[in-house]
Design a protein around this nucleic acid. Structure first.
Lengths: 233, 233
DNA sequence: TAGTGGTCTAGACCACAGG
DNA sequence: CTGTGGTCTAGACCACTAG
């Protein structure tokens, strides 16, 4: 994993201002020599740094350090909501914890049959006594076995990764703005004039299994999503 | 550009169901032989297809075709709003078209001085007689010279790319939900109980110049953002 | 025109999945 | 164990930027 080492070292240098914002970094060939690796390996590392928005490559010119944005607690699809807040402060209230047959929509998203079984979970996430997020989660019971009330009162993602030893690798999600439904109003203390930021997502494990289909609705005061898009053609 | 040709052909095969959903595709080495290119070139193409969510690579197992989601008119940062709608149907009403000194915030985002000049543009985008989007746009006049009312009544992005021959390559954006301000209420016919989906973004050219800082507020009925996140560690 | 990043090769070896 | 994708090399040549 030489390219990961390169990524790590270069990221540190940028964060420590050894390579400064707006300035040129060493050339690809210089870096290859310094790290004692081939040019292709350096380029692979630089591709990741570009994707993360740390640098910018300009053909014929050089590699430049970009602005490092200071992200304040944004929504990060693959981490789950627990990871966004200090552990002690985020409380969870479980509203529904059942095993049911999936609806047609859920079955399709999870690529299972309608006569299979899924956990149906509804939780509220509470910060400082204020309910912030309404979560509706569906997981196939034979992909994520052994869920308990205690687990879902804490972090399902921690259970999946630490206890079941599964790897969460990708997520397909959509962000929209919606009005609260009756449950949202009830549990988040909202009225018809309020609104919510909704994320619908399907999340996958490293073997390609869809293990979660969920709809999270966030109070807008707590929600932001930040990203970088790059074109390459 | 051999890898781009590979991307194109494989994408077509997936869209035409020659490689079917959930099934394995040929191996990397088979593809390399078929296309008469090296393994590394095939892998580069496959990395892009993975990023676009068309396929999924599983080490030790194979390459699998993923669900192709049918995206309905989503927000796409690098294309601009004009490109999202049929050309004839999207009308534009210009509210403000001035040249001013940038505020501190705008100057910082565009990486220029407060005593430089920027275009200040406010537009409303109208579809079928219904105002959908309120846009606030700032562009440095010496990066994007020659803007006219006619251009901004159509597509600024088309002007930049076709007439100025500049390449738009990356965008850094944040999505939040907000209440309408007085102008929003006035021009989009809203009240205090309505809400908007706000996108703040800075957009860059291929030489790294920031050419646009903008705040777009969309009616929620018209807005969605769709993405795929992948982890690689 | 010199120097930079971009693409590509042909092949080696490693890491992992699954029978 | 076999076959798969993942990483890496050492160097060639191309495409672009900028003086």
């Amino acid at each position: 994993m030489k390219y990961k080492h390169v990524i790590k070292v270069l990221t540190e240098r940028i964060q420590n201002n050894i390579y400064q914002y707006g300035k040129k970094m060493p050339t690809v060939r210089e870096l290859a020599q310094e790290f004692g690796v081939s040019v292709m390996t350096i380029k692979k590392a630089l591709d990741y740094l570009t994707q993360y928005g740390l640098i910018e490559k300009r053909q014929g010119s050089g590699i430049y350090v970009k602005m490092n944005s200071n992200k304040i607690n944004p929504h990060i699809p693959l981490l789950g909501n627990s990871a966004r807040f200090p552990k002690e402060e985020l409380k969870t209230k479980v509203i529904v914890f059942d095993v049911v047959h999936p609806s047609k929509d859920v079955a399709e998203q999870l690529q299972i049959n309608e006569d299979d079984f899924v956990y149906k979970i509804e939780r509220i996430r509470i910060l400082d006594g204020k309910p912030l997020i309404m979560e509706h989660v569906y997981m196939p019971i034979n992909v994520i076995p052994g869920l308990t009330k205690e687990i879902i009162e804490n972090s399902i993602y921690t259970y999946i990764q630490k206890d079941l030893n599964l790897k969460i690798t990708s997520s397909n999600f959509t962000i929209t703005g919606v009005r609260p439904d009756n449950d949202d109003k009830k549990y988040l203390n909202l009225t018809d004039t309020d609104f919510l930021m909704q994320i619908k997502q399907t999340v996958y494990l490293s073997d390609g299994t869809a293990f979660e289909y969920s709809i999270d609705k966030h109070l807008p005061s707590e929600f932001s999503y930040e990203a970088i898009e790059t074109r390459n053609d």
